[in-house]
Amino acid sequence: MNIFRLLGDICHLVAIIVLLLKIWKTRSCAGISGKSQILFALVYTTRYVDLFFTYVSLYNSVMKVIFLASSYATLYLIYVKFKATYDFNHDTFRIEFLLIPCVILSLLITHDYSPVELLWTFSIYLEAVAILPQLFMVSKTGEAETITSHYLFALGAYRALYIVNWIYRYYTESFIDGIAVVAGIIQTILYADFFYLYITKVLKGKDFKLPA
């Protein structure tokens, strides 16, 4: 463990909690893409299948449980409890166009063809693009609630910090996982446009609105 990865995990946790609080406090999931949340739940489910038979550390197991529980709780809030506030008209990204390429790619490029490893690889590729429905929805509505922009910033920062963690691990442990690094870089690049808007607008107290 290193400070970059710890900060990354904390950002990730903050993002998930901010989203849950936003929906719970405002009793509304307006502006939130349920499809992205479905993809995230799928990412954690396929990545943490080893939760019950591979023990890395208490921290690792606890965080996995938190990520799994919170992602399904978010799905429950969006699709059950506050279903009436779900903006399905704007949440129209075709997630099969993400799922199918990720399945194919995880069969073509993977470290190992064991079921657990294939699921892990699939989850890495899927996580890289899981935010697209949300970014697509923000681009369609042209704006996002400030709290939602904080959620997106924290979520983007988490994987950006993981890139720093991989650089650190490369130089200190000569550890490198090409699949995770390439997917992580793509994932972070997808946030670039959002990061720019967030820093130039939200941090200056303005609303998060895309230039018309």
Binding site: R5, D9, H12, D50, T54, V56, S57, N60, M63, K64, F67, H111, D112, S114, E117, W120, Y162, N165, F175, D177, I179, A180
Partner: peptide
């Protein structure tokens, strides 16, 4: 064993 198949990151 290829250490990549033992993922210690979240």
């Amino acid at each position: 064993e290829d250490d990549n198949t033992h993922h210690d990151e979240l």
